[in-house]
Simulated scan of single mutants.
Amino acid sequence: MRAKRAFSAVCALMTAAFVVTAADALGADAPAVSVDAGQSSLVEDYQHPNKEGAAAVGLTLKNGNGKIFWVDCVAGADQVTVESDSITTPNHVACFKVVGIDGYLALEIPSTYFVKAGSIKLTATLTGRANGQDVKRDYSIKPGQLTPVGEPVYPDEGPAALVELRSVA
């Protein structure tokens, strides 16, 4: 997918360079060239695609580097699964695909209680409250392992929100 985007970006830049070169060759009589206002920018904004669809099932997807992204859950697939009372899918599960190490996704899933990694190790960051103070905890999620996080581990802190996933070596 990134290769296709990169190819499209290169083609757009080459077209723009050709137009500028052609205009220079024609001199001052060259017609003005305008850019379509509806055309999307070539600048990456790191916003997660399909944020609206995710919000409909209780996930807030913020931004990332494209190596971790929300997907439909498929039995037996190499996916990260997150279990939360706030997710409105069957079994309260959301799934994510990880496509390499150094992946990053900022998100918010309140009341998260389990995270299971696919074939790549993860760090999951959750936030909660204890004694009136904000608490931030990182959990190491081993490949293929269902790991309790948040309230099951620290019941005095109450429900915790998953705020970040990172794939690590």
Rank of each mutant, 00 (worst) to 15 (best):
S140H: 10
A17M: 04
P152M: 09
G158W: 14
A106W: 03
P159H: 10
D78Y: 15
D72N: 03
T88A: 13
L126E: 05
I109P: 01
C11W: 05
T21W: 01
T89R: 15
G150H: 12
G53Q: 00
I120M: 07
N91E: 06
L165A: 14
I68C: 13
L105C: 13
K116G: 00
A30S: 02
T123I: 09
D138N: 15
M14Q: 07
C11I: 01
A55D: 10
D78K: 15
V80Q: 06
Q133L: 03
W70M: 02
A28G: 05
G53W: 05
L42T: 00
V135R: 02
L26H: 00
D45P: 05
C73W: 13
L122C: 04
P31V: 03
D29I: 00
V20I: 06
N63D: 08
A169M: 12
S167E: 02
A37W: 08
A9D: 06
V43P: 04
A124K: 08
C95E: 13
A6I: 12
G103Q: 09
S140P: 08
G118T: 09
N50E: 07
F114D: 12
D45C: 02
S119T: 05
L162H: 03
K4H: 09
A23K: 07
E157C: 14
V35Y: 12
G128M: 06
A3G: 00
A117K: 05
S119D: 00
N91C: 06
N63K: 07
A3V: 03
A30T: 03
H92S: 15
Q145C: 06
A30N: 02
L26W: 10
A77H: 02
H92K: 06
T125S: 10
G158T: 14
D24L: 04
T147F: 12
T147G: 12
D138C: 10
G128L: 06
A106I: 04
T15Q: 06
V98S: 11
K51Q: 07
V74A: 15
G128S: 15
G58R: 14
D134P: 01
T88I: 05
V115T: 01
P49E: 12
A130E: 00
R137D: 14
S167A: 06
A169P: 12
N50W: 10
A124F: 11
E44M: 05
G144W: 01
T88V: 10
A16G: 08
I109D: 07
V82Q: 08
I120E: 08
I109T: 08
P110C: 06
K121W: 10
L122A: 06
Q39G: 01
P110E: 14
G103T: 11
A9H: 07
A75R: 02
